[in-house]
Write a protein that binds this DNA or RNA. Structure first.
Lengths: 243, 243
DNA sequence: CCTCTCAATTCATATATATGACTAGTTGAC
DNA sequence: GTCAACTAGTCATATATATGAATTGAGAGG
């Protein structure tokens, strides 16, 4: 023993165990964003591995975008900010150029509720906090969101001062609750506007909508958030790279 | 000299040059699909490198999905078959289970034309061959496609016997013209059905459509194909994994 | 003919080590 | 004080080598 690994299946290769151990520590806030990890040599020493193996382990996390290497300087924890990726789905081009900014966010509701079936299934619990937001770009509403997060993991969320809400939620999750969103799956479909949504988005009832359902997972692949977002189908545009 | 590398900038790391050299050879058809490359040891000898460096070079191509490692057996050229990925965009579930098969394809048109602006821009030429297809699932039309490919690269395409057309085009490109599609970008939006499309898909004019524009690239990142596909928005469904 | 065993081949993991490139901080000359 | 040179620390590339695990094919034995 005394390998320094978090307890885990020791039939797995060393570089995998190192990767997972580091991931857990990062999730634990051991090294915060923009802070350097110990050097590869030190990690090798600490875990009783060779530098090559350490490199291979770190490689995995770099690949996942959790870490960032800077030659000559060190390896750093990268702040994940891909909440913005929801907006890959919509193009808000200024006619002049291609400045696409993150829409501002207006909080409409925040309360304890029973999650609807779909959300409860995704989250594994129906005890949830519901957040409703309207997101706008230069005073024009573009996206209407309903978000559900497990009440157990986010105790006290309802009491957070409204000032702490920026346009993005994931940094908030991380800073206030230590929960790091590592990946998400988006499911994207077509629908028609119900009365409430239509009003918020300044559309007519029955107008075509793009509907995006997202489930977000933390570093241990536990579901953290489920949300459904609605946007005007006419303005919807999505790019996907396949290889 | 006598390194075995294709001529290229020798300031680049060895593993990069190896990777690019191998990629070029594969594109050249030196090792065809499902055929094994020389072993890592032999490659190391041929290029005057160590196995470790060879592995790192090959890693890149494995990552890109061009090669596939099989422990104990060898490293193989992978047949790219992601023409089918267009159909990730639509769910055609049988009510019983989740058998999703590749839709059959009915060729409607095939001829030399001037590519429309959008296609010409993407392809870098307006001299093109146009292909129009209707794809169906158990006799129900699901996707209407217009495809443009550069006439220069596909000389003789119009004269190909219709029998050589399977449900997928990319294998055809490779087998008949030695052109390997390595990656593609899909752009996805919503629109409304024009008369022609509506008829083909058995919809009404003005019905909402999912519209997918795809540009496909070969191994050297040259554009190979541009296509636009239309499907019923109501049946549209897409999943995307973000990390 | 079939099956089992064995050996050769191949990729997978891991170590140890050396050199280059880049960064950031310190020192020292002016 | 400023700027250049130096230096220690870090990642990047590359070699050489050893052992393990999975596959394949050849042969022995029934």
């Amino acid at each position: 023993m005394a390998t320094g690994f978090a307890s885990m299946d020791d039939r797995l290769p060393a570089y995998v165990r190192l990767r997972d151990t580091l991931a857990a520590r990062i999730a634990n806030g051991e090294w915060t964003s923009e802070q350097a990890l110990p050097s590869e040599a030190k990690l090798a020493k600490e875990f009783g591995l060779s530098v090559g193996t350490v490199r291979k382990g770190v490689d995995g996390l770099v690949q996942e975008g959790l870490l960032e290497r800077r030659q000559g300087s060190g390896t750093f924890v990268r702040a994940p900010s891909f909440d913005a990726t929801l907006f890959r789905f919509f193009q808000f081009r200024q006619i002049d150029g291609s400045q696409l900014s993150i829409p501002s966010s207006h909080l409409i509701l925040r309360s304890r509720t029973d999650a609807p079936d779909e959300a409860a299934t995704a989250l594994g619990t129906s005890e949830a906090i519901k957040i409703v937001r309207l997101r706008s770009l230069s005073d024009e509403p573009v996206l209407f969101e309903e978000i559900y997060i497990p009440a157990r993991l986010f105790t006290g969320f309802e009491e957070l001062p409204e000032a702490s809400f920026g346009p993005l939620l994931y940094p908030l999750y991380f800073e206030r609750f230590g929960i790091l969103v590592k990946r998400a799956t988006d499911e994207l479909g077509f629908g028609r506007a119900a009365a409430t949504v239509a009003t918020q988005l300044r559309l007519s009832e029955g107008d075509p909508l793009a509907v995006i359902r997202r489930t977000a997972f933390d570093i241990e692949d536990k579901p953290i958030e489920w949300r459904i977002a609605y946007g005007d189908a006419e303005r919807f545009r999505y790019r996907s790279d396949i290889s």
